[in-house]
Each structure stands twice: as C-alpha cells, then as structure tokens.
Amino acid sequence: MRLRTGATSVGVFSLLWQLNEWLGPLDPTLVASPRLVLGALPEVLGDGLLSQHGPATVYALVAGFMPAVAVGILIGAVVGYSRRLTYLFEPLIMAFYVTPRIAFIPILIMWLGIGVSSRVAIVFLSAVFPVLMNSLTGVQTVDRLWLRSGAAFGATRMQAIRLVVIPGALSSIMAGVRLGFGRALIGVIVAEMYVSTAGIGKLIRLYQNSVRVDALFVVITAVTIFGLLGISLLRRVERRVSPWQEGMRW
C-alpha cells in the first residue's frame, strides 16, 4: 500500500517531465526528460565515469560520517547531561550549527590540500553538528523519571549516560544522524565541485563543461538513489535499536 501510493507521486512527476519534451514550454536540451536521461544512461555508465568517480565520494562520505556520528552523540550526551556544560558550550555549538559548513571548504583546502583529507574533513564537519545538536536536545528532554530510576539505584554519571541518557534520547539522536547524512552528502559533493581530483562533484563539473543536461541528470539521480539507500539503511538501524518507539504512527 505504502509503496504503491509512494510510487504515484514519482510516476506523475516523471510523466509531466516527459510531456514537457513532447508538448512543453521548456527547452528539452536544458531541462532534459526521462527519455533523454535514460538515453544517456548507457553512455555515463559505459564510460565507466560513474564507477570511476563514485567510490571516491563514498569513501570520503563513510570516512567522515562514521566518526561524526560517534563524536556527535558522545559530546551531545555529555554536554546535555550537565547543566553547567550545557550553559558553557551551547552557544558555541549553536554558532557552528548555524554557520554553513561548506563555507569552510576554502580554508580546509588551504590546510589539508585538495586531496581526500579535506573532503573527509568537510563531511565530518557537515555531519557532526546536526548529530550533536539533536543528541544535545534529545538528552535534555530525556524523561526525568528514567533518570531518577537510574539515580535511585546509584548509577554513576557514566552509567547514567550509557544506560539511560543515550538510549532514552535515541530517537532524537537518530533524527540528527539522518539529518547529518544529508548534510554530509551536500558537503562532499560541493567540496568535489569546488576543487578536486575525483568524485561525483568532479564528474558533475565535467558534464557541466560540456553542457550535458541529460548526463547530469543521470549523475544526480544516482546521487539521489544513493542518498535514499543511506536513509533507509539508517531507518532500519533505528528500528533495530529502538523497537519500543511508538512515536511513529505510520
């Protein structure tokens, strides 16, 4: 039911897009169409360009995202658990959170060069703050009663954080992780487009230079599919770790 209903919006969108090529007001060489995009598919895949540039992006993404999740959750939990640390660090965290991290790309490139390390760094920075912010608010809104039950049985601070605070804040943390993943994807591709030797962003620049809207859409769709796979994987992880969450009604 869910799948069929969901497919409807994608289907209608594709149909309108296709109709534009045949009847439409917009120039097909600029907006392409599903037919043209499918036509470009063998070329983009056949050139091996996607399989050449894809892994570099995935590598930077994974290498930056994993530590961002770990660091974001931990710092968020430790800071959010203590009133004093919250007062101390919240303004700083907030400032980083609202600053677009892709604005740091030039600086990171000056520091780390145009190689993979600057891209890993931008992925890390992009993802860590959404995770941290959500971990922080999640921890701050953990049910008092759960904390009390830990405290009443003599939980130490680290026990409380590990056994009560983080599990109790998990749905909020996972929302942050999903948000962070989206930001990381933006970060890595923008970094690759800015100046880079490899990656999907680099590929996008190549097709831009030859004005290949159809091929660009193939690349963009590939990124979209990758992003959707990532999100659904994260959702699955979330279901696994917090089966008790009844918060989602459907």
């Binding site: 009663l145 759960w146 049985f153 003599g154 056994l163 009560v164 599990p167 109790g168 998990l170 008790w244």
Partner: peptide, 15 residues
C-alpha cells in the same frame, strides 16, 4: 540500591 525505591509511576526503561 540498599535503600531501593519502588516508584509510584513505575519508572521502567521502555527500551
């Protein structure tokens, strides 16, 4: 824990 509480609101950990 040597003065163990049974909470009025149970206070179980739902996960």
């Amino acid at each position: 824990p040597s003065r163990a509480l049974v909470f009025q609101e149970f206070a179980l950990l739902p996960w």
